[in-house]
Simulated scan of single mutants.
Amino acid sequence: MANGSRQAVWEFFGAELKRRREDAGITQVELGARVFVSGAYIGQFEQAIRKPQLDITQRIDEVLQTDGIFERLCRKLIDDRRYAEYFAEVVELERVATRICEFAPTAVPGLLQTRAYAEAVTIAANPFVTDEYVEEIVGARLERGHILKDATRPEYWVILHENALRVPVGGPAVMAEQLEHITTLAHDRKVLMTVLPCAEGAHAYMTGTLKLMEFEDAPPTAYTETEFSGNLLDHPAVVKHAQRAYDLLRAAALSPRASLPLVESAAEDFRRCASTT
């Protein structure tokens, strides 16, 4: 579904939500209280400014007795075949987050990937797919990264494990370009990047990625992912536990000032290696 078409359906979602809510004689504040978000958040759904999570649409259907229409619309909108089913909702949340904090234990996270790096990762995981498939997946990943260039971009904090700087994904030239891209974003103050050194070995047990997302008028969420699955977590106690885990990782990481030269040095090493091959 094209971006324009998706936005048109979200606008229909909002207009229909407003109509059904008013027909039921319920204010935005009242509906928000009954589905555990603020009234302002309901207003943003209705104006298609913010996109609701699937569980919120399910509660809206229950309160308004709308026979699942909002859940079905939401599922259609997050059913983007360019993303794994468990990740599509995360993409929508990234677009409206005010802060994203991410830990990447083995590879550069999608929001920071260059085209060449994303192609190498995609082909490594799917060696028998067509060029068209690779282009579709890579295009979607690069599209996600645009949020870091928008004027309304979220604060983006990322902790890169040193492993992500050393594994030559796509070869030395690809890695040099990728690491230089990260340092450019850091110099431009579009990301706050730190590195967790290999010397902090005990933290390597955390092999999955961790992403924390905060929003203006909604509770924070956490997302964890391993190679074959991902979990979007919104239970307050679980999110609090994830936030503590991230705080411990951040405490063990180098400072941003010390991290930047490390990434620049790794990029220079790869660039030198590429020039001799």
Rank of each mutant, 00 (worst) to 15 (best):
L112G: 04
L262C: 01
E11P: 00
S275C: 03
A88R: 07
E180G: 08
Y133I: 09
Q47E: 07
T27F: 12
E214N: 09
R153P: 09
L93C: 09
R271W: 02
A124R: 11
I100H: 11
E94C: 12
D61A: 03
I26H: 08
G4E: 14
V138G: 13
T57N: 01
N231C: 14
W10D: 03
V138A: 06
Y41R: 11
A266V: 03
L192P: 02
E92L: 10
G201L: 00
Q47L: 14
H181R: 08
F12M: 00
D79H: 13
Y41M: 12
E200S: 11
R19A: 14
E200R: 09
F70L: 02
G68R: 11
Q65D: 15
A116L: 06
G110M: 07
F103E: 05
R72D: 13
D188M: 02
E132Q: 11
R144M: 09
A88V: 11
L160F: 06
E180T: 13
D55W: 08
T114E: 02
E216A: 08
D79R: 13
P109M: 04
G68T: 02
W157E: 14
A252P: 00
D131W: 06
E132F: 06
Q47N: 10
S259T: 08
R250W: 10
T209I: 10
E227V: 11
A251C: 03
A202W: 06
T277V: 14
M175F: 01
R99Y: 04
R34P: 00
F45W: 03
F270V: 06
P52H: 04
A151H: 14
V37W: 14
Y117N: 05
L77M: 13
F45K: 04
P154C: 05
I60E: 02
I26W: 02
G171Y: 15
T277M: 02
R272A: 12
